[in-house]
Write a protein that binds this DNA or RNA. Structure first.
Length: 586
DNA sequence: CCACCAGAGCTC
DNA sequence: AGCTCTGGTGGC
């Protein structure tokens, strides 16, 4: 039996009943002090144990609660992404199914298609792609349609022709009761078409066709562990169902490009793209903050011109708050979080017009101190000015036409709108004449090997997104203009991927290999870290250890690593907590 | 005197 | 990660 949770091993229980429940059926069993719901595993022949075997308290299902196909998907997730069946089940199942809610599945039969087939469909204009998807839905069959954003899914669903809508379902973005109702409705065959965000990839229907729009968007990666992309899961489902997989978007992901080498169908018009050297930035400083703000004369001129033409301007900067860091001018020490030790940034307090500190990692809020907590120095200065500092500065030039983006409400008059990549959806509804990336080098540094792709795709999207694309200009400020990948913007993503993949291949990075991130449980002994490193190295697996932060392992396949980690994830090790394993594969 | 809560303890 | 047990608090 598998227990939903961080554990990898199966547990053995005694059954006092004439008939064995099917693989995947749920049972109630005593675990630790309490009673929990588990899933029946494939029978192991004569599992000998030296300890007393506890009884199964209740059998909840006669048949598999998930169905064979989704059960197989969970099994594949557990093996491929080093999370074990327990966490895979938590990801695949609706929460109420895990709690033991009763239901009787009646999954519809399906005439299997002959073979798996992958169709790339890349076009920068939403309407062109969406029209194609609508045609696919009208053609009949069971179709799953995934979108990278909830809003896009809802909008697409809203505009479906009545005939399709009647047999379609919009998958809820929230869990709980709504998700459970959707699950039951789909499982009982009351919908032929499922439209939704990433979570809809677990809709319990044997689809004939699976469409993934915007397939390279990292928004498909689930927030909770295991951090897997719904796109990978869609691909796996299509493969095991022998369904048709349609991959659409602005541009392909590394994996898809590598497999089918599609050609970029469009280029940026020559006037539509401007590359600016950030080294020529104006020497403007915000009060109390050290460091230049990335404003060049080229940016200012074009912004003014776009506003005069009655159009909106987007300024992208991936730094929230007023300053990214605060340091003491006497001792040089930076203020750090008392809870997790990360650096604190300065941002506007939610009450009154004051500033407060906020931890970039754990989100802890604190009031801004008057003196340095280390040396009692009285001059605290900000480093790396962010959007709020930019706002007060830009207001000097463009007065009330500058807006700091908030999710709600949109400016009516032509404005300079400041924000992070979250501004991109504004292109759908506003006439954007200029999209400016103030400091492209600083964008998307989270996953190092994916940083260039992130940056490229966002800039690419900022040109094409929305109906006002005609005549829009994209301006990119960088410290390295004219070198390497920045030049591929004009030529399109085929050129970008060719260069990028050549480099990743030489380093055996994804999609050519796996990169595994191991975050150790907080509060563990330091020796535990050494033990794990030692264990891996003895098994011939080299580990990158920076001393703090996660451990990294690069591997061609995850099999060997899985074998080494498995004993660490047995239920008896629960007391010391478990490392969080994240597999980067594309 | 017991309802309620936070923290400890446990895991085939 | 849940689940239950425990022991302290507080409401009346």
């Amino acid at each position: 039996m598998f227990l939903p949770g961080p554990w990898w091993n199966t547990l053995t229980y005694a059954l006092n009943a004439p008939r064995l429940p099917a693989e995947g059926a749920r049972v109630k069993v005593p675990v630790g002090r309490g009673v929990r719901v588990g899933f029946v595993a494939r029978q192991k022949i004569g599992a000998p144990t030296d300890r007393e075997i506890k009884p199964i308290l209740e059998v909840l299902d006669e048949n598999s609660a998930l169905g064979d196909e989704l059960w197989g998907l969970a099994d594949w997730i557990g093996r491929t992404f080093l999370c074990g069946m327990g966490e895979a089940l938590q990801l695949v199942c609706p929460t109420l199914l895990l709690r033991g809610e009763t239901f009787s599945p009646c999954l519809p039969d399906r005439q299997p298609r002959k073979s798996f087939q992958e169709i790339p469909f890349y076009h920068p204009l939403d309407e062109t792609r969406f029209e194609y998807y609508r045609e696919r839905l009208l053609a009949g069959g069971r179709v799953l349609l995934l979108f990278s954003e909830v809003e896009t899914a809802a909008a697409f669903f809203g505009k479906l022709p009545i005939v399709v809508k009647e047999e379609a379902l919009l998958w809820p973005s929230s869990g709980g009761k709504k998700q459970w109702e959707a699950w039951k409705r789909v499982a009982s065959g009351k919908a032929r078409v499922v439209v939704g965000p990433a979570g809809a990839v677990f809709a319990p229907l044997p689809f004939d066709e699976i469409v993934v729009d915007d397939e390279s968007n990292p928004a498909y990666i689930f927030q909770k562990t295991p951090k897997i992309s719904a796109r990978s899961l869609a691909g796996r489902r299509a493969f095991s169902l022998r369904a048709r997989l349609i991959l659409g978007g602005w541009m392909p992901s590394a994996k898809t490009y590598l497999r089918s080498r599609p050609e970029c169908p469009v280029r940026l018009p020559s006037g539509g793209f401007v590359l600016v050297d950030l080294k020529s930035a104006l020497k403007v400083e915000a009060r109390g903050v050290n460091g230049k703000l990335p404003l060049t004369s080229s940016l200012m001129d074009r912004t003014r011109a776009a506003l005069d033409a009655g159009r909106h301007v987007l300024w992208f900067l991936d730094r929230k708050g007023y300053a990214g860091e605060v340091y003491c001018s006497d001792c040089g020490e930076s203020l750090s979080c008392s809870r997790c030790g990360s650096i604190m940034r300065v941002e506007a307090a939610r009450v009154r017009e004051t500033m407060e500190l906020r931890c970039v990692r754990c989100g802890l809020r604190k009031t801004l101190p008057f003196q340095c907590p280390t040396c009692r120095g009285t001059l605290l200065l900000g480093k790396r000015p962010g959007l709020e500092a930019l706002f007060s500065l830009a207001s000097r030039y463009f007065a009330e036409r500058v807006v700091l983006f908030e999710a709600k409400g949109k400016p009516v008059k032509p404005s300079v709108i400041l924000g992070t990549r979250g501004l991109l959806p504004l292109c759908d509804t506003l006439d954007v004449g200029l999209a400016a990336w103030l400091d492209l080098d600083a964008e998307a540094r989270k996953v190092e090997y994916g940083a260039r792709f992130q940056a490229f795709s966002m800039v690419w999207e900022s040109y094409w997104r929305g109906i006002g694309a005609n005549g829009r200009t994209v301006l990119v400020q960088t410290r390295r203009p004219g070198f390497g990948w920045q030049n591929t913007f004009r030529l399109g993503w085929s050129h970008f991927w060719k260069g990028e993949l050549r480099e990743r291949k030489s380093l055996a990075l994804p999609p050519y290999g796996f990169l595994v991130q191991l975050d150790l449980p907080a509060g563990g002994r330091a020796s535990e870290r050494d033990d794990l490193v030692c264990l891996l190295e003895r098994a011939g697996i080299p580990v990158m250890d920076a001393g703090n932060g996660p451990l990294w392992v690069a591997a061609k396949s995850t099999d060997r690593l899985a074998a080494v980690l498995a004993p660490r994830f047995e239920i008896k090790n629960s007391r010391q907590g478990f490392p969080v394993v994240t597999v980067w594969s594309e």
